[in-house]
Structures are given as structure tokens and as C-alpha cells.
Design a protein around this nucleic acid. Structure first.
Lengths: 338, 338
DNA sequence: TTGAAAGCGTTACCAC
DNA sequence: GTGGTAACGCTTTCAA
């Protein structure tokens, strides 16, 4: 039980120093290229480090230098294709600078989110990226006194907090505009959570675009969803059960569209022949639904990259600015011209 | 520029001690409940800690105690619904014990995976969870000399490494068995990556089950895929172009099935009326495809929980054993009885 | 019950 | 160039 010989107990800088017959300071300098080291010592060090398979303890480094080279990410769900696309962008943006991601999920619950951010701060992340969620602006502002923050889907701003959003309203307008251009007049909408800013913007886009085209909004055609497939399914079931007449459905997001599509399938209503569907987000899988989904594309990867870059800016590694592609309609096959 | 007064510079245990007029040791003991603290000091401490909003520095704690309470996870892609389901399980399993997850992706590339594990170790994670991937057994064994490991989808075993897999072969057998029971004889298979153990097991299950039922395997019906939608699409296009006759398709995983389904849709071939499809994995979204996909369910959440629990075991927080549900066929609507 | 002090593995300042 | 040493913020003997 005491024979742990086969487990390599990690080597310390001190041991390296001793083995090479130099001082710890020299080893450190050598490792970080902080100062010139004579050739013989350099050689000795290279050999010893190789032999002992020495790897610096990042914990100790972090404690000493006051930076963990870790950025905390508050996401809402580890299983969301939406957030995870952005996550990949963040990772790609910061990886080269030696930053790693500490990811925690808040599940759309302000209390839990706040708790996670506290955890992130306790672990001394250098910054935290917030992916939407339900934290209040003042909460975010409060956190930003303790750690630099960049928040997506929020419009907070402050000395150490940067927020940015995509123009969901505009995206929704484009979607409805397209539907109208294709001859649709009775357009149903499945909304998202009422407390979700993006969801509200999409609804507003729907309303306003109809109005702009002098199409009267039929309140019976606006049904609640929850940004999940099940909500979309239920919503369409409701619409159908109450005998509403409509030729197209604007789903608040792609997941909702998937559910809506299934509800239609269940009743043998064809898409787009009988009913058209348009989504929002352009998740990867929307390319492979049957029919492939016409939807509003959110440049999530670029969003992630931008989050990463702005964070690096704040952390003292200035990155080139990048212009965020706008939301754009991607026309596939779920909408029919009337 | 020097006026950072609005940014709360973090309080240290030392400052708390001073403000409360006690020694740092007492503060520590109070915080950790390591020893009795007299009532007056306790009161003072409570007040001061509240006032100064003191939060222990986990970095310093980790350095001192030799544990970061972090478990590193080597996944293959942050965007995989498959891996992320397991991830949620891991998180749920370890959260209560105060562990956080440090996630890195290896992208199915052994070199990159090894590099990520090194990074994880450098950051002194307490253990590493490996989600399949292409690391060799000996590499994993090597890492396990430096950090406890639990690996999913690998059969390595050692003093500080535990590997476990699901019986993919069995799952594939069930799928084919089902197809045969439904009257199918000419069953096409879209394989997965050749270097992927699970993919090979699923292929073997296909082969052996056909053989067991004395159905001759037509090599033209076995076409390569890549575990992605695009591979499934291409595969079916190929099958169709070369005029193969078949009544069902066994896709190596759900993503492949999605692609296959779209290829069929493109040619107006109905599912399941004309061709049946069966998948593997049972991703969440498979419930909402049209038609909902019949597939082999992998209990990924439970896999994640198990990974987490076994890891906690190794880390000195024994957890109750859990029995892993077996792979099971979930019959939905993509297979027709002939 | 409490305090002093050593130490976790680094980095960086100050001398030489 | 190089070594000694304090310090990062905490925990934990050892004494009192």
C-alpha cells in the first residue's frame, strides 16, 4: 500500500534545481526565458528536465502571478446545440493564448446562474463569459466589479463589462417579410419564453412586419412555445384543434420548428405543400430535417469568436476587431410560394 | 487610470484575521469547522467576513491541499449531442461533492487528445475522464501513472484507471434482429469510421445476425459512412445510384440516419413505407425527426453518472455502485413491417 | 481555544 | 549571469 513507486509523484522546480546544481531562480528564468542563462547550465537543465519529466505546476504559477489563464463560461445547458456552437468559437478564439474554459450551466435560472458565477470567481477565473440567461443587468454589473465580463445577449456596459446582442428583431422581420413575399397572409407564430429578450424581439418583429404590410394580426394565431421541441408540438396541436386557418408557421427557434413539423406530420399535413414552416437559429441539424428548414441564421460561431476576442482584449491581449455577420435568412425547402 | 477604487480587490484571510483581531489560523479553523472557536470570536468573524465579503481563494487552497476539486474531461467535440449527454451526467454526479469540470476536446485525433490530457494534468485536475477517442491503451495507461482516469468506450484497466464500454455489438444485433422480425431481408448498412471500435462492433453485429439467420450478406449493401449526416446522405445516394435493392437501412448512428433519411426524401422515397431506417444512439432529437426514428438507445446520461461516481470513488469519496442499463431498442416509426 | 510559523511550488526583486 | 529570499493565500502541525 505504501509502494506507490509506479505512480510518478510530480517533480518540482526545486528538485530540478538541485539535480542540475543551480538555484530555483535560475530554473525559473530558464523556463520562462526571463534572463540569459549560461550555456553549460542551460544544457544541464535541459537534460535534467527531460530526465525528470518536469512540468511546472500551473497552480503555483497562477497563485504567484494572479492569473489562472482560465476563462469561466456561464452557459445555460451543456446540451444546447445553440450555445455549444458559440462555445466552440470561444474556445478557438482563446486557445492559442493558452486559455482554457471552465464551463458551468445556469439552466435559465437566475439564482443558479449567480451561484455559478460565484463559483467561477472563487476559482479565480480571469474573466467570465455569460451566454444570455436571466441574470439582471445590475447583477452582471455587480459581478463586473470583481471580474471582467463579456456577455452575449445582454446590453450591459461598464468599465469592465461588455455586452452585445444580435438583432433578433431584424431577423424576425426578414423571416416574416419573406413569408409575405411568398404570398402568405395567415401566418401563425409560436412564441418563446416570455421572459426571454430574444423571444420578445422575435415576436415584435412578427407583429410589426405584419402591421407594416397592413395584415391584421389574428391573436388566435399567436401561441406560446418554450424554445423546445415539445412546445412546438403542443402549440401546433392547439392550433389545429381549435381549427385555426393558416398557411405558414413562424417558429421562435429551430427546436420549436422541429416540434411543429412533427405535429403536422402526425396529421399527415405536408410541409411545405400544405403548410410552410420557418425557424430561427439555423442549428446544424436544420440542414438535415425533412424538408430542410428555412430559417434565420445566427452566426453563433462568430459570436463565440467575438466573445473570446473581446475577453482577451480586456485581459491584456488585444485582438483585431471583427465584424459580426448580421442575421440572415437561409432559404431551404420548408416554405412554399403560394 | 490608477483609480480602481470601484473594483473590489479581493480580500484575503489575513485581512479578515486582522479586522477581527484574531490569528489567520483561527479564521481558517472557523471557516472549515476544523476546531471549536469561542463565541465572541465566532461572532466577530461572521461580521467581518460578511462586511468584507470574504471568499476563500480556491487557488491557494488547492496548492496547499494538493487538490483542485476539478475533474478534467477529454471529450471529442463540444458540439456533440452524444458526448454532451454524458457530460451532463458527469456534472450531475460530481457537482454535489464540489467538483467542477474542465473540458477539452480532442477532435478524434490522438495527438491532440494527448496534448489536451497533458494540459489537464498541468492544470492539476484531480482526475481525468476520457470519452472514447483515439488514444492508445498504453497512452492511457501511461497517463494513469500521473492521474486517476476513468475512460468510457475503452477497456483499459489498471491500478488507477478504470475503463468501461457499452455492448455495441449486442445493440446492433438487436437492431438487425428486429428488422428481420419485421420481415426485412435485404438490409443495407452504413458503417462508421473504420478505426472506431464502436463502429466495428456495430458492423460485426450486423454481419453476425444476418449469418445467424442464414441471410447472405451482400457486400454491395455495406457502404461507408463517417458518423455524420453528410456521410449518411452520400452513402444512400451511392446505394441508390448503383441500383441496389434493399428494404431497410441500418445506420451506424443517428446522425447517419438523419442524412440517409434526407437522401431518401430527395428522391421522394417514403420512410418507412418504401424503405425502413434504424439508427443507433437515440439522440434526443431522434424523437422529433419525421418519422420519429427507431433506434438503439445508449444510456448516455447514466454513463456520465457512472463516470462521475467511479471517479469520485478513486478520489476518496465512495459512491454507491450503479448498474448501467443495457442498450435497448426503442421502437418508433421509421421501420415498417413487411 | 488560540497563535506562530512552516510549507505548498512558483516568480521576481535585490544583491553580488 | 546567478543565488538568496520574500511573497502569493491558504492549511496545519506544534506549543502554549
Amino acid at each position: 500500500m505504501k509502494n506507490d513507486a509506479s505512480f510518478s509523484s510530480t517533480t518540482t522546480l526545486h528538485q530540478v534545481a538541485q539535480a542540475a546544481g543551480v538555484s530555483p531562480a535560475t530554473v525559473s528564468r530558464f523556463l520562462n526565458g526571463t534572463a540569459k542563462v549560461s550555456d553549460d547550465k542551460r544544457k544541464a537543465l535541459e537534460r535534467v528536465i527531460e530526465e525528470l519529466n518536469y512540468k511546472p505546476n500551473r497552480l503555483a504559477q497562477s497563485l504567484k502571478m494572479g492569473s489562472t489563464r482560465t476563462i469561466g463560461v456561464l452557459t445555460q445547458s451543456l446540451e444546447s446545440g445553440y450555445f455549444n456552437r458559440a462555445m466552440v468559437g470561444i474556445e478557438d478564439a482563446v486557445k492559442a493564448s493558452g486559455y482554457a474554459l471552465l464551463i458551468m450551466s445556469g439552466h435559465w435560472h437566475a439564482d443558479e446562474e449567480a451561484e455559478r458565477v460565484e463559483l467561477l470567481i472563487a476559482r479565480r477565473v480571469d474573466g467570465v463569459a455569460i451566454l444570455t440567461g436571466n441574470l439582471s443587468d445590475s447583477q452582471i454589473l455587480g459581478f463586473s466589479k470583481r471580474v471582467p465580463i463579456v456577455a452575449f445577449g445582454r446590453q450591459v456596459a461598464g468599465e469592465r463589462v461588455l455586452g452585445f446582442s444580435l438583432d433578433n428583431y431584424r431577423g424576425a422581420c426578414e423571416a416574416i417579410e419573406f413569408l409575405i413575399n411568398q404570398g402568405h397572409r395567415r401566418i401563425a407564430m409560436i412564441t418563446g419564453p416570455e421572459d426571454h429578450e430574444d423571444a420578445r424581439a422575435r415576436l415584435a418583429g412578427y407583429r410589426d412586419t405584419l402591421a407594416r404590410h397592413k395584415i391584421e394580426l389574428d391573436p388566435n394565431l399567436v401561441v406560446p412555445g418554450d424554445f423546445q421541441e415539445s412546445g412546438g408540438l403542443l402549440a401546433v396541436n392547439g392550433l389545429l384543434a381549435s381549427n385555426q386557418r393558416f398557411t405558414a408557421i413562424f417558429a421562435s427557434n429551430d427546436l420549436t420548428a422541429y416540434g411543429a413539423r412533427l405535429a403536422l406530420y402526425r396529421r399527415s399535413i405536408r410541409v411545405p405543400d400544405d403548410i410552410s414552416i420557418i425557424g430561427f437559429d439555423d442549428l446544424h441539424s436544420s440542414m438535415y430535417t425533412t424538408p430542410p428548414l428555412t430559417t434565420v441564421r445566427q452566426p453563433l460561431y462568430e459570436v463565440g469568436m467575438n466573445i473570446g476576442h473581446r475577453m482577451l482584449d480586456m485581459l491584456g491581449h488585444p485582438q483585431p476587431p471583427m465584424d459580426m455577420p448580421a442575421l440572415s435568412l437561409v432559404v431551404r425547402e420548408s416554405v412554399r410560394r403560394l
